[in-house]
């Protein structure tokens, strides 16, 4: 692709930008290395920052070469995607908001703009061509911003997914309190996925331990809305179908008020204020009691 047409006019702004990036690679990398984005991420040595900046310049040149300046999925970005993601993550760990990272990326355009302008003026390019080149450059940097944001977002999403899985594993232990009595202390907000896990683990434990009484302790559940109540009712109904009785305990006064205000009918569910009350109820129903030993007093 010739940079200039045969008659000396300027027709290919994308190619112009590509050639400019390749020509000035060293100079741009040096100036980018001083920008906060590179300086603060690659702290080991300045050379490291310069190398990283060079990799990004090369990637931009390759994208311009493929004439896909508007495409964040362009093949040219794939080589630096991981590095850009690392930079984005490092900056957000340093406490920057997504907007701040974005404007730091935008500021990478300035070190490119003036040299490009100077080069074009030197070559006595017509005004229209200069404008087209500038637009191409702006679009290219914009696409770079999108790539960084995409990568950072998907990494954040992966982290959230991982933590959600960990939470599911950690937060639902089934405890055997007595022969035939199991308890699940629920901690945190109950959503559909979690309550499903709670229901399954509780019912499995009921079968495994032949437990006739299952206590659902909601002391650690901050709020009870109609959805949570519905999940509780479902668990209670399922346990009953299997031949176990469910007791809901740990209903704090505020939650009791909420339940009444919402008009939720927990009439079919045995409820107790605390876990101790629930255990006492279950023991009583099993025919076992706790008696003070006269000799030990």
């Amino acid at each position: 692709m010739p940079e200039h047409a045969a008659d000396g006019t300027f027709v290919n702004p994308t190619g112009e930008v590509r050639d400019f990036l390749r020509r000035r690679r060293e100079q741009i990398a040096q100036r980018w290395a001083d920008e906060p984005l590179f300086r603060t991420v690659f702290t080991v040595s300045r050379d490291e920052a310069v190398e990283a900046a060079k990799a990004v310049v090369d990637a931009l040149a390759e994208v311009a070469d493929a004439a896909r300046v508007e495409d964040p999925d362009a093949a040219g970005f794939s080589s630096v995607r991981e590095q850009l993601g690392r930079m984005g993550t490092a900056r957000s760990r340093a406490g920057l908001s997504a907007g701040q990272i974005s404007s730091e990326l935008a500021s990478l355009r300035l070190p490119l703009e003036n040299p490009l302008l100077a080069d074009l003026q030197e070559a006595e390019a017509p005004e229209g061509h200069v404008r087209a080149c500038m637009t191409t450059l702006t679009v290219l940097i914009g696409t770079l911003r999108v790539v960084v944001m995409q990568t950072a977002l998907s990494e954040g999403q992966a982290l959230i997914d991982r933590q959600r899985l960990q939470l599911l594993e950690v937060a639902t232990p089934v405890i055997k309190l007595w022969d035939g009595i199991v308890a699940v202390p629920l901690i945190g907000t109950l959503d559909s996925a979690r309550s499903q896990v709670v229901m399954e683990t509780l019912l499995e434990a009921v079968v495994e331990q032949q437990a006739r009484y299952a206590i659902l302790d909601i002391t650690g559940v901050p709020t009870v809305d109609s959805l949570v109540a519905q999940h509780l009712m479902k668990t209670v109904a399922a346990a009953r179908l299997m031949g176990a009785e469910c007791i809901v305990s740990g209903i704090r006064p505020a939650i009791a008020q909420t339940i009444v205000h919402l008009g939720l009918d927990l009439g079919t569910v045995v409820t107790r204020a605390g876990l101790a009350d629930a255990l006492a109820y279950a023991l009583h129903k099993l025919g076992a009691g706790i008696v003070a030993d006269a000799d030990l007093r």
Binding site: E200, L203, V207, A239, L241, M242
Partner: peptide, 12 residues
């Protein structure tokens, strides 16, 4: 007697 957990969940 002896309803399995999966069956109980399905019915509910």
């Amino acid at each position: 007697v002896g309803m399995r957990p999966a069956v109980a969940i399905t019915l509910v």
